[in-house]
Computed example of a mutant assay.
Amino acid sequence: MREVGAFEAKTHLSELIAAVEAGEVVTITRRGRPVARLMPVAGDNAGRAAAVERIRSLRKGLAGISHKDILSARDEGRR
């Protein structure tokens, strides 16, 4: 992962975008502290797709449980 200062990021933005398009992750710092991260969009979508698939598999496991059953279990736990 590459780190660049805010001023350098501002003056070389097009170069940084080209690096990100090539798959690189760039952290932008201000006074040595990380404040932003440039990363490819495709990497973000892959994580979303995996999360959606996990949610779908969890839903399959709950197919036999009704809304009333869930509320009943919740209320029972409050006693």
Score class of each variant (00 low, 15 high):
15 E>T: 10
19 A>S: 14
33 R>S: 11
27 T>W: 03
23 G>A: 05
45 N>S: 14
24 E>D: 12
34 P>R: 02
45 N>I: 15
8 E>N: 07
35 V>K: 01
30 R>E: 15
18 A>P: 03
9 A>D: 08
27 T>V: 14
16 L>W: 06
36 A>F: 00
18 A>D: 11
43 G>H: 05
27 T>K: 09
13 L>Y: 07
35 V>Q: 03
37 R>S: 02
30 R>N: 14
23 G>R: 06
19 A>T: 10
21 E>K: 14
21 E>N: 14
32 G>V: 02
38 L>M: 05
8 E>W: 03
19 A>M: 14
43 G>F: 03
14 S>C: 08
31 R>K: 13
23 G>Q: 03
33 R>K: 13
9 A>G: 09
9 A>W: 04
28 I>Y: 00
45 N>Q: 13
31 R>F: 11
44 D>Q: 15
23 G>S: 06
37 R>L: 04
37 R>V: 13
41 V>C: 09
23 G>P: 01
41 V>E: 12
20 V>Y: 03
16 L>R: 04
14 S>Y: 08
26 V>S: 04
10 K>S: 15
32 G>E: 07
31 R>A: 14
41 V>S: 14
22 A>H: 05
41 V>R: 15
34 P>W: 00
41 V>I: 13
16 L>H: 06
15 E>L: 11
26 V>E: 05
26 V>H: 02
32 G>I: 05
18 A>L: 07
8 E>H: 09
18 A>Y: 00
11 T>A: 08
15 E>H: 08
17 I>C: 06
21 E>T: 12
15 E>V: 09
15 E>A: 12
39 M>H: 04
25 V>Y: 05
40 P>D: 04
31 R>D: 14
27 T>C: 08
27 T>A: 10
8 E>K: 12
23 G>K: 03
22 A>F: 01
45 N>T: 12
